[in-house]
Amino acid sequence: MSIVEELMQTATSDTDLLRTLDGQGDDFSVPRDVDFLMRAPSQERAELVANFINDNQYGVATAEESGGKHSVNIVIRMPVQQHLALSVSGFMACVATLFGLDYDGWGCIAQKSAQHIVAE
């Protein structure tokens, strides 16, 4: 799959996730920890990408291994307004492609803004 096709598919998946969060009453402007996941062919490749992410301060990345499968989990504290979420997700898809990993998308917990009660 070309990088353009990957970006188009990622944007569609990201928009679907945002619709789900919207259905849960999410306030997209509230910053929260957002997890981005990449699947790696080896522990060495996972560590290489995690180090790249951390060294360039794109997020906080951890190379992980579970059941013989390798991955990179990247956490970024951010709001998830569509233009931000899709831009960061697209960047992660590009990084994954450049390093030969599979980008598996992102997720977060829906957030609601705090309601302030004003006494009169």
Rank of each mutant, 00 (worst) to 15 (best):
A46P: 08
A46E: 02
L48S: 09
V49R: 09
A50F: 07
A50M: 05
F52M: 08
N54L: 09
Q57G: 04
Y58N: 05
G59P: 10
V60T: 15
T62Q: 15
A63W: 03
E65Q: 13
S66E: 12
G67W: 01
G68T: 02
K69G: 08
H70R: 08
S71G: 14
S71D: 01
N73V: 11
N73Y: 00
N73C: 05
I76T: 07
I76D: 02
I76E: 07
R77M: 06
M78H: 05
V80H: 00
V80P: 04
Q81S: 12
H83W: 10
H83S: 14
H83I: 00
L84E: 11
A85Y: 08
L86W: 00
V88F: 08
V88I: 15
V88T: 11
G90Q: 00
F91Y: 12
F91S: 11
F91N: 11
A93I: 01
A93L: 02
C94E: 14
T97A: 15
F99C: 01
G100I: 01
D102N: 14
Y103Q: 03
Y103F: 11
G107K: 09
G107Q: 09
G107S: 14
C108L: 05
A110Q: 07
K112V: 09
S113W: 00
A114W: 04
Q115M: 12
Q115F: 08
I117H: 15
I117K: 10
